[in-house]
């Protein structure tokens, strides 16, 4: 059977709780070059949106590419996207390997 083409999905996470609640691993210069979701905290905005899943790789945050971003910078970009008052949501472009 054909190998499923990897798909990128745009997920909008509404800021409907005071925490985002995701743990990410990886970043530039690690064996996981793009940040991958490893945990989602129950009750956080990420969990509430229902579309983010452990294992998804985050390609972009609000249109900002995470390609080449070191781990701490990728985490900072995500944290700032959640903290900013300019938007009531965060748009994640995620990629689900092998889906």
């Amino acid at each position: 059977s054909p190998v499923p083409a990897p798909t990128a999905t745009l997920v909008r996470v509404l800021k409907n709780s005071n925490t985002l609640g995701i743990a990410i691993e990886g970043g530039a210069n690690t064996r996981q070059p793009l940040p991958r979701i490893v945990t989602i905290q129950k009750g956080g905005s990420a969990h509430n949106c229902g579309q983010l899943r452990v294992g998804q790789i985050i390609l972009e945050v609000n249109g900002i590419s995470l390609k080449g971003q070191e781990h701490k910078d990728a985490a900072r970009i995500i944290a700032e996207a959640f903290k900013t008052k300019e938007k009531d949501h965060i748009d994640f472009l995620v990629f689900e390997p092998g889906l």
Partner: peptide
């Protein structure tokens, strides 16, 4: 021996 370190950093974003 691989260039990238084997451990992978993990951070919580609250």
């Amino acid at each position: 021996v691989s260039k990238n370190p084997q451990w992978v950093p993990v951070t919580w974003v609250f």
